[in-house]
Design a protein around this nucleic acid. Structure first.
Length: 499
RNA sequence: GCCCCCUUAGCUCAGUUGGUUAGAGCUGCAGGCUUUUAACCUGUGAGUCCUGGGUUCGAAUCCCAGAGGGGGCACCA
C-alpha cells in the first residue's frame, strides 16, 4: 500500500516496470477512485437481478430492438471495447454474461470514471435492455457504480489460463478464466445434491460419524496419523465410514448413509487424491444383488438429472449408463481377458508363474488382484459389475452362499475406472473375528495396509446386525465420468500439491 | 520411492548449429474512434529465459545438481 503510494511520482518518469508496475497502476486507479469520492469496496448492491434472468427475459428480440424494461445487474468485468464517447463492457455473474453499453451522452460525468475500471473489477449497472444492430442483447447503462476494485490482472481473456500448476494452486483464476472448469464444478455440485436426493427419496437416513478415530478400519489402506493434545493420544483420520455405519444398522437405522471425506495415506495419481469424497450406504435386509440394482438406478438417474441423459462421453466414445449393466464374475473376467482360470490355479506359486509375477511376498489373493488390475480393469469401459471376490481380499464381506472361498462382493467399473464397491455385509461376529485374526497375521507379515483388529466392532456385531447390503461409491470418480475428465484433479477444486 | 518429459513478459506462445541489445499476440500505459464483441488504428512500456553450479571467447540453447509441474511405474478407491 505505502509502497504503491511511493511509486506514484510524475506522469512519465518513475514508471515501475513489469508485474509490479501492473499492480501499481491498479492501485493508482484505486486511489483516484477514492480521491473522487468513490468507495471502491462498498458493502452491498441491493435489488439486483441475476444476469441469467435478464437474458431469459429478452429472448428472440430483433437486432436494433429497444425495450422499456430497466434492469439492475452486477458482475465482474470480463471484457471491454472502447469507442471514444462510448464503450462496451462485458459483465459476468454466476448465471451468465451480458454486454453493457455505456455512452457518454447518457452517463454524463459518470462516463469519465469508467477510465479507472479494469478487467476483473466488479461493478453494478442499471439501465434498460436493448439489442444492438449486431443482435447483441445489452444493458444501456444509465448509472453504474464500483462494487469491488480488482488489484491484480486477470488471466488472458482469450486463451484463458492453461498452466496446470496455476490452475490447481490458484483455482480462483481457473474459475475466472475457464468456462469448462466452471462447468465441471457445477456438475459436481449437482451430482452431490442429486445423489443425496436419491438416497433421501429412498428412505435413507443421513448420519455423520467420526473423522478422527482411535482405531481406523473399513478398508485396506494406510491412514494419516494425528495427535489429540488434551487426551494426549494418537488418532487416525478415517479411511472409510464402514464400521461406524454398520453400528448404526445394529442400532436400528435400517437404511443409513454418509457422504463425506475419507483420507488415505497413499500416492497421488490421475485416480487418487489423499482426501476424497466417498458415499457409503447400508441397507438392512438387502444383499449385494439388491445393491447392484440400486447403484444402476442411482448412477443412471443422477446422470439424467445432471446431464439430461443417461449416457456419457469418454475418450471420444459414448457410453450408456442405463440399466442393466454388464455382470461378470471375477473368474470369468480374468479368464476372458487374460486366459487364466483362477478357480483352477488355486495354488499361489502356480498362479504366480502363470501371470509372470516376480513379487515373492504377494499372496494368492494379491496376485488375483494384480492380474485383474492390469489385464481386465482397463478394458471395462461400459458399466460393469465384477462379482464374487476371493475371501482374503475382503475382510468385511459375507461368504458366498454357493461358492466356497468366495465372498458376495462386487466392484463397479466405468471407463476403465472403479467407481463403487459393495458386499453382502458380514454379520457373523465369530466369522468377523476370524477375518480380523487373518488381517492381524497380514500385519505381522509386514502388510501396513491390513485391517487392524477392532474388538469394539465385534461386540457391536454380537449385539446383532440384520442381513445388510452396503455400498461405497467414489464421488470424485463418478464426477470424472460425468465430466469426461481424465484426471481426478480436474474435479477436485484444490487438489493435493507439494509445498 | 523409481523412470521420462516440461518450466522464456501478468496470460498464451515463438526463439535457427551455441553468436549483436531475447521476440509476437493479449493485458497495461498515452492518444484516436458513439453499435463493438479476440473491436479497430497510432505510439509505448514490460524479462531472475525455474534455481544453483559447470563447459565455452560467448549459454534461453550444451553438461551436472536441485525445485515445481505433467505423464508412466509401484501402491490404492
Amino acid at each position: 500500500m505505502s509502497e504503491a503510494d511511493n511509486q506514484q511520482t510524475g506522469d512519465d518518469e518513475g514508471q515501475v516496470e513489469g508485474f509490479a508496475g501492473i499492480l501499481v497502476e491498479r492501485r493508482e486507479k484505486l486511489d483516484r477512485l477514492r480521491a473522487s469520492g468513490v468507495n471502491p469496496f462498498p458493502h452491498s448492491f441491493t435489488g439486483r437481478e441475476e444476469i441469467g434472468e435478464v437474458i431469459a427475459a429478452h429472448g428472440g428480440l430483433e437486432p436494433g430492438a429497444e425495450t422499456d424494461s430497466v434492469h439492475r445487474i452486477a458482475g465482474r468485468i470480463t471484457g471491454r471495447r472502447g469507442h471514444g464517447k462510448a464503450a462496451f463492457i462485458d459483465l459476468r455473474d454466476a448465471t451468465g454474461q451480458i454486454q453493457v453499453h455505456a455512452k457518454a451522452d447518457v452517463l454524463g460525468d459518470a462516463y469519465g470514471l469508467l477510465e479507472d475500471l479494469d478487467l476483473g473489477d466488479f461493478i453494478g449497472v442499471e439501465g434498460r435492455a436493448i439489442v444492438t444492430r449486431r443482435g447483441q442483447l445489452s444493458i444501456e447503462a444509465t448509472s453504474w457504480q464500483v462494487l469491488t476494485k480488482s488489484l491484480r490482472p486477470p488471466p488472458d481473456k482469450f486463451h484463458g489460463l492453461e498452466d496446470t500448476e496455476t490452475r490447481y494452486r490458484h483455482r480462483e483464476l481457473d474459475l475466472i478464466a475457464n468456462e469448462e472448469s466452471r462447468e465441471i464444478f457445477r456438475i459436481r455440485a449437482r451430482t452431490v445434491s442429486e445423489v443425496r436426493r436419491w438416497l433421501d427419496d429412498h428412505g435413507f437416513f443421513e448420519v455423520e460419524t467420526p473423522v478422527l478415530q482411535p482405531l481406523y478400519g473399513g478398508a485396506l489402506a494406510r491412514p494419516f496419523v494425528t495427535h489429540h493434545n488434551a487426551l494426549d493420544r494418537q488418532l487416525f483420520l478415517r479411511i472409510a465410514t464402514e464400521l461406524y455405519l454398520k453400528r448404526c444398522v445394529v442400532g436400528g437405522i435400517d437404511k443409513v448413509y454418509e457422504l463425506g471425506k475419507d483420507f488415505r495415506n497413499e500416492g497421488i495419481s490421475m485416480k487418487h487424491n489423499p482426501e476424497f469424497t466417498m458415499l457409503e450406504w447400508y441397507e438392512a435386509y438387502a444383499d449385494y444383488n439388491d445393491t447392484a440394482a440400486e447403484l444402476e438406478e442411482l448412477v443412471s438417474g443422477v446422470a439424467e438429472k445432471v446431464l439430461g441423459k443417461a449416457e456419457i462421453e469418454r475418450d471420444g466414445r459414448t457410453i450408456s449408463l442405463a440399466a442393466p449393466w454388464h455382470r461378470v464374475t471375477l473368474r470369468d473376467a480374468i479368464f476372458e481377458h487374460a486366459g487364466i482360470d483362477i478357480d483352477e490355479l488355486t495354488d499361489r506359486d502356480a498362479l504366480s508363474d502363470a501371470i509372470g509375477n516376480d513379487d515373492e511376498t504377494a499372496g494368492w489373493g494379491k496376485l488375483v488382484d494384480t492380474v485383474f488390475s492390469k489385464r481386465v480393469e482397463p478394458q471395462l469401459i461400459e458399466p460393469t459389475f465384477i462379482l464374487d471376490y476371493p475371501e482374503e481380499l475382503s475382510p468385511f464381506a459375507k461368504n458366498h452362499r454357493e461358492k466356497p472361498g468366495k465372498v458376495e462382493r462386487w466392484e463397479a467399473f466405468i471407463g476403465g475406472v472403479e467407481i463403487a464397491n459393495s458386499f453382502s455385509e458380514l454379520n457373523d461376529p465369530d466369522e468377523q473375528r476370524r477375518r480380523f485374526e487373518q488381517q492381524a497375521a497380514e500385519i505381522d507379515r509386514g502388510d501396513d495396509e491390513a485391517q487392524p483388529f477392532d474388538e469394539s466392532f465385534i461386540e457391536a456385531l454380537e449385539q446383532g446386525m440384520p442381513p445388510t447390503g452396503g455400498v461405497g461409491l467414489g464421488i470424485d470418480r463418478l464426477v470424472m465420468m460425468l465430466t469426461d475428465s481424465s484426471s481426478l484433479r480436474e474435479v477436485v477444486l484444490f487438489p493435493a500439491m507439494r509445498d
